[in-house]
Design a protein around this nucleic acid. Sequence first.
DNA 1: CTGTTAGCGCTTTCAG
DNA 2: CTGAAAGCGCTAACAG
Lengths: 367, 367
Amino acid sequence: MTVTLADVAARARVSPATVSRVLNGNYPVAASTRERVLRAVDDLDYVLNGPASSLAAATSDLVGILVNDIADPFFGIMAGAAQTQIGGPGDGSGRAGGEKLAVICNTGGSPERELTYLTLLQRQRAAAVVLTGGAVESPAHQAAMAAKLAKLADAGTRIVFCGRPPLPEGDALVAALAFDNRGGGRRLTEHLISLGHRRIGYVAGPPERTTTRHRLEGHREALRAAGLEDFPAGGGTAGGPGADGDRLVVHGPYDRRSGYEATLELLRRAPDVTAIVAANDTVALGACAAVRDQGMRIPQDISVAGFDDLPFSVDAVPALTTVRLPLFEAGARAGRLAMGKENPPPGGIATIAAELMIRGSTAAPRS
Amino acid sequence: MTVTLADVAARARVSPATVSRVLNGNYPVAASTRERVLRAVDDLDYVLNGPASSLAAATSDLVGILVNDIADPFFGIMAGAAQTQIGGPGDGSGRAGGEKLAVICNTGGSPERELTYLTLLQRQRAAAVVLTGGAVESPAHQAAMAAKLAKLADAGTRIVFCGRPPLPEGDALVAALAFDNRGGGRRLTEHLISLGHRRIGYVAGPPERTTTRHRLEGHREALRAAGLEDFPAGGGTAGGPGADGDRLVVHGPYDRRSGYEATLELLRRAPDVTAIVAANDTVALGACAAVRDQGMRIPQDISVAGFDDLPFSVDAVPALTTVRLPLFEAGARAGRLAMGKENPPPGGIATIAAELMIRGSTAAPRS
DNA sequence: CTGTTAGCGCTTTCAG
DNA sequence: CTGAAAGCGCTAACAG
């Protein structure tokens, strides 16, 4: 029923090996032969058996792209961009040729799923894996990840981080594109301070994420530099890294609802805040809604700022002050790195600049 | 270097066949033996060779999810939901067991890429394929799709449509979950008409998409029912299906920018429109921006409505009147269908209801 | 440039 | 319930 390479070989009156060679295009074949083979392929409507080919070649054309939440455009944009550099499209040949199959895997932010997907990808002998977005910092998970990635790497899988800092052990195996979350966070808060804000609330992401920590650290650097750090330096009572007793920081997931609720909580704890910085734009939207529902105006009564500069942020009313991350460019570059089309940055790690976007949602506090 | 099933068998003092059986859990194995095997697997840190297994079994554990634009939450939400029903997660076993690898493929809305991805998935002997969102209606592409899907289907790949109408030939091979775009579009425009609007502009999606056509048809049904259809019934001069001479309809891609520009164009053509219906929420955001940049207020000077009810729509100011599509639920159901966990709807096709969400961006026209 | 020959690592009858 | 053996369809040396 199903056409095999041998069938094609028979019809083209060549050996299977030759068919394989023209299909893979990695070996000299006479033009006339190649043409005959190609015709046979078309006539028979032959489709290569991927598993067989991967088994024999000990490598597949799968490239995995791991994301924390594919419903979030932050990841959608990066993943889509990476796929443009990897996927079947570019070659325009119509017939699927030497393309890789770029696939996006949604971990939902769960460390277990991240590991599971990695195992699944390892099982498929993936050609490369791109890990996007913030990592979970629990030591156990980091160790497990390092071990798994090492295994993948020496099975020949290329590893690329995109928008994620390299692992502590700094495997040379990995090319990393890290966003300057700390610098962006710092500049954002500096902006608020320069506007005259002194009590600034912060709606942070989940405490165990690198992204959360870095952005928050930047925020605190700015506060400290301005002598505004009014919380205990050594952290507070809650457990885990980054925990602290600061009444002006509330943690929660990276979603709108969390932004809404955390903001309400913040306003309850400190009704005198004049500005709120959100972990990202989505959270900021929730924060805006909460602020409004409390009968306050943005930015007259309270300023709100986000992070990422997602497409909808400019359309918020007022437009959201935020920090732009070049998500598309970073994703595309990660895709190229995964394909080996581009050389890794010196030292294996590149820091991607974050640009402050000042818009209407922030202004000087009243009086 | 790499551990094989034979190694595990040796260590567990059983035959390779037995190891295979415990791993696949589809055959009776003595509890003690199974345990011994499992321990050997752990000791050796064995990972199944996917290609080899797929080759032997003539089927893989890959499930493809095709989307038009993964940067758009419309697709991100559906795809993510589908993955929750398919991916490695649910079983919680830690070790990757019987899971499928659900992968998202971003076609960018290009028919060629759609076909290419299908070929790639066919090559991988995918267990199932989920196609999401609107289809391109060109007859050539439809024919190519039908042929390709037929081939996939009889290679044992399960096919599921999600948010896409079944193909004209209505293959019984396919389970389809279609959104009621026409009904939703109709109710939305009826709402506007009931508010008193008579000149309603429409920023439509790309003309060749099913989604675009259905939503627009619903809009026209409503206009016609109210006797407001002021354009030539038979269509106008532009080429292609769905083209018409209606000055109040402008087509463009499903993105914010298109919404912005098309709205400007609309306002130029017909400065007297009192309401604008957008192809979807993203487009609506662009439309809102354009309206504001023209110095008009929403909804006092002009009403704006969207479609989809994406998460950010409720946060627009004023909140967007739109049509809610149960994207998550539909995606999850599609995932279940793809896994064979749920029976296909009677007749192979289910229509998913669309719910009108009336919010602040629409109001009665002035005077 | 092209054919021959071995496997790649697993699943699956078929016996026991 | 378990083992033995025969491929699955392709690639990759090696010879020509």
